[in-house]
Simulated assay, not measured.
Amino acid sequence: MTDIDRRTLLAGTAAVASIGAVMTGAAAKTMQHTPNLAGKSILITGCSSGFGRLAAEDFARKGAKVFATMRNLPRTAADELRKLAADEKLDLHVIEIDVTDDAQVSAGVAEAERIAGSAIDVLINNAGVSTAGPIEIQDMQATQLLFDTNVFGPQRLMRAVLPAMRAAKSGQIFNITSQLGRVMLPGFGQYSPTKFALEAISEQIAYELVQHNIDVTIIEPGGYPTAIWANANALTQQLLDRADAKHLDGYAAMVEQLRARGNNGGDTDPMDVPNAIAEIIAMPPGTRPLRKPVHPGPKPQLAINKVCAEVQVGWLGASPYGPWIKAVHNV
């Protein structure tokens, strides 16, 4: 129980952190957005664009050793990151990893650990895809792509990094889900089902890793204007083009809207997500939140998150699993 007792001892640190969270003014803003990541090795998936690309650049500038991974090398995004690293003398390394490829995941993580000279400190499972449309028209090609990328991909990466993390008795894992991993929006295809699955995997493994001093945080973004929208639109149009009329005919109005849909995501700042992750990385081990909703607008999942935490603690808090459950929920 030594590892669980360690979290109990950190309760005082958590209280200090909570006081800091209510600070206002320029000092608090500086603390929130300029954490020192020096000495951290961070592996990020899906770095060709969006949250992954922004995080790779920002974390390297904050002093981390960053492994920016992406698929389909060579590609322009990789060349741009390598040039940035050379120009700014950043400790940033581009590694090819397609999260749907077992061999690439194993080889990519091994290469990152070789360069780092030790276990990876932080894994950020960011790579993801989406399609839209009613569930009925989601054929197995679309369904398998989303589950292979959004669910099996993070599982592959976690299994690859965890042996070394456990040996080091430290580490952090971030899994990026979505508001739609907790609430349902009709017409979003298999996106919500995959993010629901990743939420469950993340929470379960968070409990199991308490004994190894490894923290897990689920990042739940709302809508942001990243490349996932354009990519989703392209995949959705391909799905509609190959769908059978017997499935499409039941959703004429929705299909018409999907065919006319353009890019989306609003005018929010995608840097909100890397900023939130950096702040959590800088927190003391054992005090980090299980879930972090990120969006300047409404966060409809907050009530669900609250009641789920209460149920978990109420159901298992007095069981043999209680110390793990309470450690994860900081109670």
Rank of each mutant, 00 (worst) to 15 (best):
R288Y: 02
A197H: 06
L290V: 03
N175C: 07
M271H: 07
T13P: 02
N175H: 12
K62D: 08
M158E: 09
F67E: 05
T236A: 03
E113R: 00
L10E: 09
A64V: 09
N330Q: 15
G286S: 08
V151D: 00
W324N: 15
E199A: 01
P300H: 14
A245G: 01
S202K: 03
G52N: 12
L54G: 07
R7A: 09
G181Y: 06
I176C: 12
I176N: 10
L157K: 04
V313N: 11
T69L: 11
A77I: 01
D267A: 11
I219D: 13
H93F: 14
A282E: 02
R53C: 08
I95D: 10
Q144T: 10
A282S: 13
I120E: 00
A116I: 02
D3A: 09
T100C: 14
L37E: 05
A116P: 06
T268E: 12
D101Q: 11
S202P: 02
S202Y: 14
E57Y: 14
Q104I: 05
A78R: 03
A160L: 03
E220C: 04
F59D: 09
L145N: 08
D102F: 13
P221W: 14
S118F: 06
A21D: 15
V331A: 15
E111W: 12
L185G: 03
T143Q: 09
A278Q: 01
M271F: 03
T194W: 13
L157C: 15
A252Y: 03
S319Q: 13
T34P: 01
Q141E: 12
I97A: 10
A85G: 06
A232H: 01
P293T: 13
K29E: 13
T100H: 07
L37H: 05
T287R: 09
L37A: 04
N264Y: 15
G39A: 06
R159Y: 00
A119M: 01
I214G: 00
I97G: 08
V183C: 03
